[in-house]
Nucleic acid binder design. Structure first.
Lengths: 352, 352
DNA sequence: TTGTAGGCGTTATCAC
DNA sequence: GTGATAACGCCTACAA
């Protein structure tokens, strides 16, 4: 119809009231007489005005109603990871009270000042707050960006430092529990399959003194080493069944003495390891015991039921959401540490 | 530090240049001498200025860099549905060229003018474009809201009408294929388990002349009825294994002649039906054949491999993303219709 | 290459 | 209950 969209000023003029009055009709912040309200609403209808422009409103108010969720990986991958999926679920719940939406973002700090890099990232998205989902090597940089923007941040699974609330897991203690379980079953030759060590590092044996920048990996490894300081360590390139399979093949194909048990840092990795064991003609748990981590339901793993640590993934997300809401309300939010529950399945048994 | 955050004007003053020059340094739209650039950047660093405020920038530019994805259900539920998950994956890809982020939204048109309903919905979020994920009974209303806001929309799986591009599936033809397959195996007594008929309608037999407002359901049902016009129809309340189980129980517990085959409108429903069959002491596929729809990997269904229609879920998402990008670029996007591929598994066999 | 001016559409504040 | 005024912070013609 018209060349440009109607604004609240147009509506006000049409209704014969002032812009502020028209504004109030839509925001409901101040009482308005029924008569005027009606006039304004009619005018709006005539002009096809559907309400304040969110961009202008958010500039004026200083709030956009958007909470950013930052992941390290390609967004699609996020949806493949059951733990993240559950966490998002909880997070959506947690910010609901805020009435905010979740904006999915990638961890690409690089952009921003570039000549034409139009990526809307952490730097350029209109966020009220951000939730960083850890395990990220880039965590530090992302955090710096967000903090310098001065918006509230919560970190899930990562070392945030300073006054940034974090939502954590008792990774080390939990993993130690699984290791102790194996120890009590008499296992001596134990191998460990870890999550990625660093961004971009491929799979392979952990070298002596190699640095581990991903917190979850380091913590869980520490827990395993509390019990088995000398265990062989094979690093994966991600939490996938295929990665576990590759790791398992490497572990079971060596000439020397085979491990009698494998501590995997995720359920998906564990599933892959089990598959590798079967390939190698080993029975689980009779010949090899395998433990996982996460407590998710792994697809196609039946009839195995992993011995694993069950983590409260959804609760973590919800807690993060609530923390963000609190910070936006001016209160300050405390860090929370969640606890895993050990669950014994049928993939561990007495050492052969 | 300071009472309020630094603005680009502050930076300009500090650097001894005009605001527009400072702006240009950050946007890179116009060449700036190295000397000035440096001065501006230094000033910015001193003041802790990290770049233009996205809210202000988006008001000025008229673009927010945000594409809304609208689902009908509680957001958490989205992540539980493998088909949606795959679709999001593709969608993230599709809008990547645009450099836009995805904002997850619920289909709550109701809010908006309410006295205190602060939900940031379709009405109030700063969107450049929207993708409506169909199957939604509220589709019409959501669509109206978005269109009246004048932003580009794409609908996945739903009747958009007018000039709204849609991303569709050949639901009817595909489902007809599965039905024909059963027919060729000699099945006569076939039952159909559908996806929900309408928002809020519980599970139960389809009444005569009952209306079906959800497009996918209606189309797939039509395809089944092309082959089996008189089949009994049981409607589920959602695409879940448990719903399929409930439906299966209803179908297998009747006194009359049992169906020898069940056409389920989703793989998850099919999995539930299979479970119900086992409960009832029926063997699949010897006593009952079961077909699904979607072609996802169903958790814990091994050793069954569903006979099903494989839909290109990720491609659908990607296509939607690309359509949105095109529309924002001023081109107009065409509707696309994707085709399912029939895949025979081990859950169908010759009628007993 | 840099500066000036005006407006993007809204809403908070305060006076009436 | 209603209206005038002044930002919110930035960007882009256009002029210099």
């Amino acid at each position: 119809m018209s060349a440009r969209r109607a604004t609240i000023t147009d509506v006000a003029r049409q209704a014969g009231v002032s812009p502020s009055t028209a504004s109030v009709v839509f925001s409901g912040k101040t009482p308005v007489s029924d008569a005027t309200r009606l006039r304004v609403l009619e005018a709006a209808a005539e002009l096809g005005y559907t309400g304040p422009d969110p961009r202008a409103a958010s500039l004026r108010r200083g709030r956009s109603g958007i909470v950013g969720v930052v992941f390290e990986e390609h967004l699609g991958t996020v949806f493949l990871d059951p733990v993240k999926t559950r966490m998002m679920d909880g997070l959506a719940d947690g910010v609901a009270s805020l009435g905010a939406g979740l904006l999915l973002l990638r961890d690409d700090v690089s952009q921003g000042a570039g000549p034409h890099g139009a990526q809307p990232t952490l730097t350029t998205a209109p966020l009220d707050a951000a939730v960083l989902v850890g395990c990220s090597g880039m965590l530090r940089e992302s955090l710096a960006v967000v903090r310098s923007r001065g918006i509230p941040v919560v970190v899930i699974e990562g070392d945030a430092g300073d006054g940034v609330p974090r939502i954590e897991l008792d990774n080390r203690e939990a993993q130690r529990q699984a290791a102790s379980h194996l120890r009590s079953l008499g296992h001596d030759r134990v191998a460990i399959v870890t999550l990625p060590l660093r961004t971009g590092r491929g799979r392979g044996r952990l070298e002596d003194g190699e640095s581990i920048t991903i917190d979850v990996t380091r913590e869980r490894l520490a827990g395993a080493r509390d019990v088995y300081p000398d265990a062989a360590v094979f690093a994966s390139a991600g939490s996938f069944i295929d990665e576990g399979l590759a790791a398992g093949r490497a572990l079971f194909s060596v000439d020397g003495p085979r491990p009698t048990a494998v501590l995997a840092q995720s359920d998906l990795l564990a599933a892959g390891v089990i598959r590798a064991a079967e390939e190698a003609g080993l029975r689980v748990p009779e010949d090899v015991s395998v433990t996982g981590f996460d407590g998710i339901v792994v697809d196609g793993l039946a009839p195995y039921e992993l011995t694993t640590l069950v983590q409260p993934a959804a609760d973590k997300g919800r807690a993060a959401g609530m923390a963000v809401a609190a910070m936006l309300a001016g209160e300050d939010a405390a860090s929370i540490r969640f606890t895993c529950v050990f669950r014994e399945g049928n993939t561990t048994a007495v050492a052969p």
